[in-house]
Design a protein around this nucleic acid. Sequence first.
DNA 1: ATTATAAAGTATCGAATCGAAACATAAAGC
DNA 2: GCTTTATGTTTCGATTCGATACTTTATAAT
Lengths: 186, 186
Amino acid sequence: MEKVTVFDLIERMSALLRSEERKKCTEFGLQSVHLQILDYLSRCNKYSDTPAALANYLGMTRGTVSQTLLLLEKKAYVNKTTDTTDRRVVHLSLLPNGKAMLQQARPTELFDQAADLLVSDKLSNYDEMLVSMLTALQKSNKSQSFGICKTCQYFTVSPDVHLCGLTREALTEDDSGKICQEHRAL
Amino acid sequence: MEKVTVFDLIERMSALLRSEERKKCTEFGLQSVHLQILDYLSRCNKYSDTPAALANYLGMTRGTVSQTLLLLEKKAYVNKTTDTTDRRVVHLSLLPNGKAMLQQARPTELFDQAADLLVSDKLSNYDEMLVSMLTALQKSNKSQSFGICKTCQYFTVSPDVHLCGLTREALTEDDSGKICQEHRAL
DNA sequence: ATTATAAAGTATCGAATCGAAACATAAAGC
DNA sequence: GCTTTATGTTTCGATTCGATACTTTATAAT
């Protein structure tokens, strides 16, 4: 049963990261949801920085998200602005405070130390394999994949510009590396 | 910066699993901590099935763990028995209800589907690599590694029996595949 | 032996989370 | 225009969580 063990290992790593995250959170007086929200906001593109997308991504109700955002706003971690074209929609953005917190709370040392222990010339292989595993997971999670923009079936790259085939909008290099709620895996 | 991206990928997968877990939880009227506790109890060996170990593993206070366990007991998911030699210690065990819940809530379909998408003859390689990555993470997380018993420096295997070098006790095949709080990576 | 110290677990309290349901507002369909 | 749908907020009650103080048991020190 190779199938099981491979993803068991992923699950184990995930558990390890979660517990590490929890410790960091209590250290900084946060809840792990807060950190997840900050993390998401740092990674999502302009189509996906709304409360509704957050609720979808994290699997929470919109009411709960609204509450949590109030708190994060009070702490000056995030900022709200209403969309200019659709006035129901709110866009969220990370404030400097929030970015700083995220920087501190991510398990950077853990990763760095772990990476040092791995034989470095094997790293490129790891990379490739993990990408295919992640893609496989995202495809299976078909409800809404929340994948990286440039790995989307709607993403097209003309000689000079990146383009989202769904919204027909041009994308910055930066945006195309971020999470999109409209993502459809290839 | 290969180091960063490799573990970034792990982090992405972890985030995906977490959000999947959260959805499952609301579906069954649980909190994600509850599921984490059930999961831990299904994976830990007899030295590590105590409230204190749980608190350590999950990064919660003992008080909080105590509260949560009350609830899980009320729902007939777990069971407490006091240790015979050290009467301060409580051992926890999963009841049938808890096992059933865990079975339902784990992202099995997700994993199965993802595995089907991966080229199967590459799976053994994935396996090997992931093990070394997990080990690296555990080593780095030096506080308490909570690793698998048989990968511990105290684990010894005589011709017929497995043995824990720390407690000098014999171990079942089953036990040696489980999580131990006394684990020290090789 | 007796005392002191440490460890495992519990109880209580207040702040915060969370989901459910009701509500408001804006856009889209017909 | 009227209805339907979508985004977001509010309110409420149940639950979680951490901090603190506490009980009980084991171990160490004298």
